[in-house]
C-alpha cells in the first residue's frame, strides 16, 4: 500500500468530470460496461489509478467503467478472479510489479501467467533520500562515505522482499558496499527512522516523502530513473552519478489469457489518446507519474522480461529456489 497516498491525491476532482460523459468515441467499444479489477482496497494505490484512468477514459471511449476491489493475498485473489473472467475485453486488471512478485514468492494456484498484459501506462519514479541534516548531497557521496567507514552504513526500505528492498541489495552489489538494510512495515516507519537519523538513506516513491520534502526535512539524493524528473530537474539520476541502478515500478492493464486482440487494441488506443489530453496530463504530472505507454504486444514482451528479471534476482538473493 506504499503508494496509496500518491494516487489518492489524484481522486480529488473525480466527481467533477462525470458531466463530460458524452460519448464521442470513434468506433463503439464492444462492451457498454467494463469491469476494472484491482487487488488494492478502496483508496489504495491501484484503486485510485483505475478510478482516475476510468474518469478520463470512460467519456473518451463511451464506456462505463466499474472498479471492483478484490483485495487480499497481495493480488492472489484478484488473479484468481481474472482467470475466471471471459477474455472478451469486458474485464481488466490493474497491473503493478506486485502481482508478479506475489506469483513468484507465494506461488498461488493462479499466477501472472494466467493474465495477458494489454498495456503499460505509467512508471512511478523511485528516489533515494535522506534527512536535510545529513552532510551528503548526492548518492555518490553516501556511497563514498560508506566505503570509507565500513560497517557503519544503514539503509532502509519500506517493505521486506519488495522491489525497493531488492533495489538496495543490487545497490550493495554494484558498489561493493556492505550496509545494514532494514525493512519496515510501510513508508511511514521508514520515514521516522530516516528523520531521526537511525538510517542514512531511505528509498521510496516521491509521493511517500512529499510532506517532508515540502517542509524541507528531507532531501532527494538521486532518482532511480532513466532520465531526470521534470519536477526535480536539479536532481541527478543514479546513473549520472556513476551507479547503474534503475527501478521500474510500472502501472498498466491486463486481461485474462487469450484476450480478444481487437478489444486489447481498442483499450490501448483509448489510453494513448487520453494520456495526451490536457486534463489528465495535468493530474498525472502533478503526481510525478512518468508516461510509459506500451500497446498490447509490447506490454506482453516487457512484462515477460520484467518477470524474468525479478525471478532471477529473487533466486540470486535466495528468496526463491533455482
Amino acid at each position: 500500500m506504499s503508494n496509496r497516498l500518491r494516487v489518492l491525491a489524484a481522486l480529488a476532482a473525480l466527481p467533477l468530470a462525470w458531466p463530460l460523459a458524452e460519448a464521442n468515441a470513434q468506433a463503439k467499444y464492444p462492451h457498454q460496461t467494463v469491469t476494472l479489477v484491482t487487488h488494492s482496497s478502496a483508496g489504495g494505490g491501484s484503486d485510485v489509478f483505475l478510478r482516475e484512468l476510468a474518469r478520463h477514459l470512460g467519456p473518451a471511449m463511451g464506456v462505463n467503467f466499474v472498479v471492483e476491489n478484490v483485495s487480499g493475498g497481495s493480488g492472489a485473489k484478484a488473479m484468481a478472479r481474472m482467470a475466471k473472467a471471459p477474455p472478451d475485453g469486458s474485464v481488466f486488471y490493474a497491473t503493478t510489479p506486485t502481482y508478479i512478485q506475489t506469483t513468484l514468492l507465494s506461488k498461488p494456484e493462479v499466477g501472472y501467467t494466467a493474465l495477458e498484459p494489454v498495456a503499460t501506462v505509467f512508471l512511478d519514479p523511485e528516489v533515494v533520500y535522506t534527512r536535510v541534516e545529513s552532510p551528503h548531497k548526492t548518492l555518490a557521496a553516501v556511497i563514498e562515505d560508506a566505503k570509507k567507514n565500513p560497517g557503519k552504513a544503514k539503509w532502509g526500505a519500506a517493505n521486506p522482499a519488495s522491489l525497493e528492498r531488492i533495489a538496495l541489495e543490487r545497490l550493495m552489489r554494484k558498489t561493493g558496499v556492505k550496509a545494514a538494510v532494514v525493512s519496515h512495515e510501510g513508508g511511514g516507519q521508514l520515514m521516522i527512522n530516516v528523520l531521526n537519523g537511525t538510517l542514512d538513506i531511505g528509498i521510496g516513491e516521491i509521493q511517500e516523502i512529499r510532506a517532508q520534502l515540502d517542509a524541507g526535512k528531507v532531501r532527494i539524493l538521486a532518482t532511480l530513473t532513466d532520465k531526470r524528473l521534470d519536477q526535480f530537474p536539479e536532481v541527478a539520476t543514479a546513473r549520472e552519478q556513476g551507479i547503474d541502478l534503475v527501478v521500474t515500478k510500472f502501472r498498466g492493464l491486463a486481461g485474462p489469457k487469450g484476450i480478444d486482440p481487437k478489444a486489447a487494441a481498442a483499450i490501448g488506443d483509448g489510453i494513448k489518446a487520453v494520456l495526451a489530453s490536457p486534463a489528465y496530463k495535468k493530474e498525472y504530472l502533478k503526481e510525478n507519474l512518468v508516461v510509459a505507454f506500451m500497446p498490447h504486444a509490447e506490454a506482453v514482451k516487457f512484462t515477460g522480461g520484467f518477470a524474468k528479471e525479478v525471478e532471477a534476482s529473487l533466486q540470486e538473493f535466495g528468496l526463491l529456489k533455482k
Binding site: 496509496r4 497516498l5 489518492l8 491525491a9 481522486l11 480529488a12 483508496g43 512529499r210 510532506a211 517532508q212 515540502d214 517542509a215 526535512k217
Partner: peptide, 13 residues
C-alpha cells in the same frame, strides 16, 4: 487519504 483527496498534505506545512 481524506486529506489527500482534497488536495491537502498533512504534515508540518
Amino acid at each position: 487519504g481524506g486529506f489527500l483527496i482534497h488536495g491537502m498534505q498533512p504534515g508540518p506545512m
